[in-house]
Simulated assay, not measured.
Amino acid sequence: MHHRLAAAEGIVFLRDTPPGSPDQQLGSRLAAARLGATRRAFDAVVHRLGNRQSSGEPLLRRQLVTGSVADTVAGIELARAMLNAPYEAHDLITELDEGIIMLFGGAGYITDQPTRALYVSAMIANVWGATR
């Protein structure tokens, strides 16, 4: 299967398990890989928010942004602890990714930004989820 965004991330889709026979180990490995992409995008958004100014101070110092960043850090740690429960972990990772995309603002919806990996990550979860 070829997909433009996946190809840009160097991802190739493979069919590992027969339909209808979910593989918990595969799901856990995919969740761990997705969590790595989430963490990289999160680090990029924190860097971006630290460098962007509003009213003379970094956006990262805004109360609402700081709260969102703190919630994301807690969510990432929770997802890490949930990797042995891949269905739940994938749902949480998708939720975290959506929050990170929003923190990027309008740039989060452009395919040449770090958030591109998060869209591909969601596709991977959807492909894996469809086979369970």
Rank of each mutant, 00 (worst) to 15 (best):
I100W: 13
L96N: 07
F13C: 01
S55M: 08
D112P: 00
R40K: 02
V12C: 02
R61N: 14
H47C: 03
I110Q: 10
N51A: 14
L96Q: 06
S54E: 12
L14K: 02
Q113A: 15
R34K: 12
A125E: 04
R48P: 00
E95H: 09
A122K: 12
V46Q: 11
Q25K: 15
I76S: 05
G106D: 05
D43G: 06
L35E: 02
Q53L: 09
L64N: 15
T66A: 15
L14I: 05
P18S: 07
S21Y: 08
G36H: 07
D112A: 09
G105E: 13
T17R: 15
L83I: 01
L78F: 12
A33N: 12
T17Y: 04
L92M: 11
F104Y: 15
A81S: 13
R15M: 14
T66P: 01
M82F: 02
L103N: 08
D43M: 02
R61A: 14
A74F: 00
A117W: 03
R15Q: 13
E77T: 10
V120H: 00
L35G: 05
L64P: 04
R29H: 04
R52P: 00
P18I: 14
D16T: 13
H90C: 02
I110H: 04
Q24E: 11
A89K: 04
V65Y: 10
A37T: 06
S68E: 08
G108P: 00
P58V: 09
R34I: 09
A85W: 02
P58E: 10
